[in-house]
């Protein structure tokens, strides 16, 4: 266990606590301090990532420990940036614990050295990994807003006006934010997949080897493509879009972790421990 991770995790945890305080007490000061705590955590996290990068001379995503740590970093970064764009304060209540969870999981997963099959110093690959992770972070946030949408829709349709009804924003805001997340996430995912194919072509001489990782990636991509298609062509929004965003994220999680554990294919070193 690497104790240098603890300050970062502590800051994320404090940020999560701040957001929880905001959820219950609805004071702006909690919201602000939570954001600042997360931001400080993220900056420290960035520093540690930089040190790792320099020491390894390659992107530190060589085993499950590093991958989780990296995913937490990207999610924090994406959340902090998009928070400025969207007036969705409540999102922090869900995003902050998720970030904390990723970082804490990284802490508990042993950091074992792995012999690399891929060349993580290759620029194509670095770009591929970073952009895919950014896309996945956006889609994770889309899943969060999807869940929030379903909760709020249930409150309004079911005529229950308790705790969450008052604290969650309007359906319109949740829906449009979710749409933004999916649009950005899908774009990043697409670019990431293309760079992956290019890397495969360059390294292995073939775009598509038909292994489970590639097949499940394609399925994930198709789900989000369907969501966006419905939205753009017939204006479908609300409940259906929220459910698709949640399903899409579940499939993506499976592609990310499940395939590596249960099925065979490349990318295995990502999650080895």
């Amino acid at each position: 266990m690497n104790l240098t991770l603890l300050p970062v995790i502590g800051l994320y945890l404090a940020g999560s606590a701040g957001y929880a305080g905001f959820l219950f007490l609805q004071r702006e000061v909690y919201n602000r301090s939570a954001y600042l705590l997360l931001l400080t955590g993220f900056l420290l996290h960035t520093l540690l990532m930089g040190v790792d990068y320099v020491r390894a001379g390659a992107l530190p995503v060589q085993n499950l420990h590093e991958t989780l740590w990296f995913a937490g970093w990207i999610l924090a970064g994406v959340f902090l940036v998009l928070w400025w764009r969207l007036q969705l304060k409540i999102l922090g209540v869900f995003a902050a614990p998720l970030i904390t969870l990723l970082a804490a999981a990284a802490f508990f997963v042993p950091d074992t050295a792995v012999s690399l099959e891929s060349d993580l110093a290759s620029l194509w690959l670095v770009f591929h990994v970073v952009i895919i992770f950014i896309g996945e972070a956006c889609l994770a946030l889309a899943c969060c807003t999807g869940i929030l949408y379903l909760i709020q829709e249930r409150n309004i349709k079911g005529k229950k006006h308790r705790f969450f009804f008052r604290r969650l924003p309007s359906l319109e805001l949740l829906d449009s934010s979710g749409y933004t997340f999916v649009a950005i996430g899908f774009t990043a995912l697409t670019i990431g997949l293309i760079t992956g194919f290019i890397y495969a072509e360059v390294e292995w001489g073939r775009f598509w080897s038909g292994n489970p990782k590639e097949i499940w990636s394609a399925i994930t991509w198709l789900i989000y493509a369907a969501l966006l298609h419905e939205r753009i062509v017939s204006g479908r929004r609300g409940r259906r879009a929220a459910i698709l965003a949640i399903i899409g994220f579940a499939v993506m999680l499976f592609t990310f972790l499940g395939v590596n554990f249960l099925l065979e294919g490349h990318h295995n070193e990502f999650t080895r421990w």
Binding site: Q152, I156, P169, S170, L171, E172, L173
Partner: peptide, 8 residues
């Protein structure tokens, strides 16, 4: 309620 549905 309208505000919770439409936002603005």
């Amino acid at each position: 309620l309208a505000r919770k549905i439409f936002g603005q």
